[in-house]
Amino acid sequence: MATSRHLLAILLTLIPHLVYSNSSNGFFYQELLNGNGNGEIHFNGVKLHVESEVQSVFAVRGSNVTLPCRYWYDPVLNTPRKIRVKWSWLPPSEEHESDVLVAIGHKHRSYGEFKDRAHLQQLHPGQISLLLTDVRLKDSGRYRCEVIDGLEDESATVDLELRGVVFPYQPPHGRYHLTFQAAQKACAEQDSAVATFDQLFSAWQDGLDWCNAGWLADGTVQYPITQPRQPCGGLSMAAGVRSYGFRHRHLHRYDVFCFSSSLRGRVYFLEHPEKLNFTEAAEACREDGGHIATVGQLFAAWKFMRLDRCDAGWLADGSVRYPISYPRANCGPSEPGVRSFGFPSPHHKHGVYCYSSQ
């Protein structure tokens, strides 16, 4: 009899901690108190789901973009849950994710390059989308939306891809002089970033044809060919993106493919009464309230603003180029593009392309 009373007492103490679902299928979860007094749920038949309704989202530099994500329970729970939301980011050239934002309820914290630019959108029940403001060139990559409820942990991914233009680049001292680190620096100096394979592949689909091999963001070396020819892999090879595979980032030297996105300001050909050498050109742009344009800025202006000018002009790296959106006689080849005269002597006289943030 004493034993029966003892068992009954134990059962009576457990009953208040058993919580049953209102659904007819009998699923339930049990709430156990852990050492610090916070409730932790051990699910039994309740499934946590996390989903992004799209695989990829596209944006341009300087814009705001929303990466969609939502969560729900099956069967539906009638009691609100306190969950932890975490957004992380895997850049194209990296192996490990970085924290973007962590949130509990309506409180959140953003990290690193995303500090004060990453915000959680919770406009509807279950919505935990990520809003990124002032998108930057390096923001492209795979983003993971993770929901943690007690011991349950589910996630979904969405890719952020930037719209832009890919251009091959080699420094003034000639072909195949850039290590991977030097390639990163060269693109950054041109207001751009090292292109990803997806960006180069998309450019190839749009007609980019270039026979010099260049670094990509993942450390591979590749080049796009739309018209097979003997010096570029041979006539027997089909059109495509040729690959040298992964190369040693410190020992091997190549050119680089850079990527530039939307332009915040404007690029313009400076109307000047006379031609200018390189030093005079840079000074003329400063006197006009701007600065001499970079190669990336000229390509972005050509791509996004249809800049079209049949006059060669200095750029910040010491090259001379001009943009053609509407091919015509005496303005180079029959395809649109940015024409290049290479790196003439800085004493030669040319026009100049300036950039203004206004």
Rank of each mutant, 00 (worst) to 15 (best):
M1P: 13
M1R: 15
A2C: 09
H6R: 15
H6T: 10
L8H: 06
A9G: 10
A9L: 09
L12P: 02
T13R: 15
I15V: 14
I15C: 12
Y20C: 13
Y20M: 14
S23Q: 12
S24R: 15
G26A: 04
F28Y: 12
F28N: 03
L32P: 03
G35D: 08
G35E: 08
N36I: 12
N38R: 09
G39K: 08
G39L: 10
H42C: 04
G45P: 00
G45I: 00
L48R: 00
H49W: 06
H49F: 09
H49P: 06
V50H: 02
V54Y: 03
V54P: 01
S56A: 12
A59G: 08
G62R: 11
N64V: 15
V65W: 14
T66Y: 05
L67A: 04
P68K: 08
Y71A: 09
L77N: 02
L77R: 09
T79E: 13
I83G: 06
R84A: 05
V85P: 00
V85I: 09
P92A: 07
E94H: 11
H96M: 12
V102H: 05
I104Q: 12
G105T: 12
H106D: 13
H106P: 14
D116K: 11
G126I: 05
L131N: 06
T133Q: 12
D134P: 07
V135A: 05
I148T: 10
G150Y: 06
L151R: 10
L151H: 09
E152F: 13
E154G: 07
D159Y: 09
L162M: 02
G164L: 05
P171L: 01
Y176M: 10
Y176A: 13
L178G: 00
L178M: 01
Q181I: 03
D198G: 13
D198C: 07
L200G: 03
S202Q: 15
A203F: 11
A203T: 09
W204H: 10
G207M: 04
L208D: 04
D209I: 04
W210K: 07
C211R: 11
A217D: 13
T220H: 10
Y223A: 03
Y223H: 15
T226R: 10
T226I: 05
R229I: 01
C232P: 03
C232M: 02
G233Q: 02
S236P: 09
A238S: 10
A239R: 10
Y244H: 13
H248N: 15
H252K: 14
D255L: 03
F259D: 01
L263S: 00
R266N: 08
R266C: 05
V267K: 01
H272W: 07
L276A: 00
F278S: 03
F278E: 02
C285M: 07
R286L: 15
G289I: 11
G290Y: 04
Q297V: 06
A300C: 09
A301W: 08
W302Q: 06
F304L: 13
D308F: 12
C310D: 08
C310Y: 11
D311F: 13
S319N: 03
S319W: 04
Y326P: 00
C331E: 05
G332L: 00
P333T: 05
S334C: 10
G337F: 02
F341I: 13
G342S: 04
F343Q: 01
P346V: 07
H348I: 07
H350E: 00
H350A: 02
